[in-house]
């Protein structure tokens, strides 16, 4: 396959960027999208040019490090698939593919396609944890959890924190990310003591980071590589409403 990649090139955080077109030849349909970028970078390096910077780690679709906007869609055209698991057989020979970084004020561009997603870490730091000392793994049935709750909590826990929801949202909102964590911990017994402060503090941290508000358009869940459902946002809203009725529960 021969492709034209139009890639966002930006030398540093405070430098103006632009889309640059590259011809890539000899692409195998079995390659992943990141392998095509690897191939391009190999060539750029040999030519003495600056290779395209992009984030990646496990390349198994489970770490959340990779992620670029492919033809206007975060992680590309395949549903429930990270960029590293997106294969070139979903494109056609001769295609022109636009590759851009996540776009959000809270995700400043570091270089080319790499953005700083530290804002998501700060949302987690605000309350996305359980502070009880847990020791070693307890016996499986020492603490009973209803099957339905366990399933819903697990579904929410599959969030890999890649930030595609923010990239897709017309409001640049991180609500699906925050809601996934609030739902995950809020449904389990270990998450109960901090349930109210968690939702208040995580929403406050999210607002402070400069993310937009949720308008329930559903763009986030459509691109989420883990298919986190929108109902988690309803769960966050419910927890927020309950927590707001009682004063002095925030930890920040």
């Amino acid at each position: 396959m021969n492709l034209t990649l139009r890639i966002w090139r930006q030398a540093g955080p405070d430098v103006r960027g632009r889309m640059v077109a590259y011809q890539v030849t000899g692409v195998s349909p079995d390659m992943s999208f990141l392998e095509v970028l690897d191939m391009l970078n190999e060539r750029l390096t040999l030519e003495g040019a600056d290779p395209v910077a992009f984030d990646h780690d496990c390349r198994e679709g489970i770490c959340g490090a990779c992620g670029v906007v492919v033809n206007g869609v975060p992680h590309g055209p395949q549903k429930a698939t990270t960029t590293c698991q997106l294969h070139m057989r979903h494109f056609r020979d001769g295609d022109t593919i636009d590759v851009e970084p996540w776009r959000a004020r809270a995700f400043p561009v570091v270089k080319d396609l790499v953005v700083d997603r530290g804002a998501l870490d700060r949302v987690i730091q605000a309350g996305g944890y359980v502070s009880a000392p847990t020791g070693s793994a307890p016996d499986a049935h020492a603490l009973p959890v209803p099957k339905a709750d366990a399933d819903a909590a697990f579904e929410a826990a599959t969030c890999i924190g890649c930030g595609a929801c923010v990239a897709a949202c017309p409001n640049g909102s991180a609500m699906l990310f925050t809601a996934a964590k609030v739902t995950h911990l809020g449904l389990l017994p270990q998450g109960q003591p901090e349930r109210q402060s968690r939702v208040l503090d995580m929403v406050a941290a999210q607002d402070e980071a400069g993310f937009g508000g949720c308008t329930n358009t559903g763009e986030c869940t459509a691109v989420c590589p883990k298919g986190i459902p929108l109902e988690t946002i309803g769960q966050l809203n419910r927890d927020y409403l309950q927590a707001s009725r009682r004063p002095a529960r925030s930890r920040s």
Binding site: N71, V73, R103, A106, G210, G212, G213, T217, G218, E219
Partner: peptide
């Protein structure tokens, strides 16, 4: 909220495709 949303994405996408949002949601 609209001003906040606008500020949340200072640099627009060069290539943007509406994925799922209904016409009603986009024209609120």
């Amino acid at each position: 909220l609209a001003l906040r949303a606008r500020a949340a994405r200072p640099v627009r996408y060069a290539h943007r495709r509406p994925v799922q949002g209904s016409y009603a949601a986009r024209t609120m």
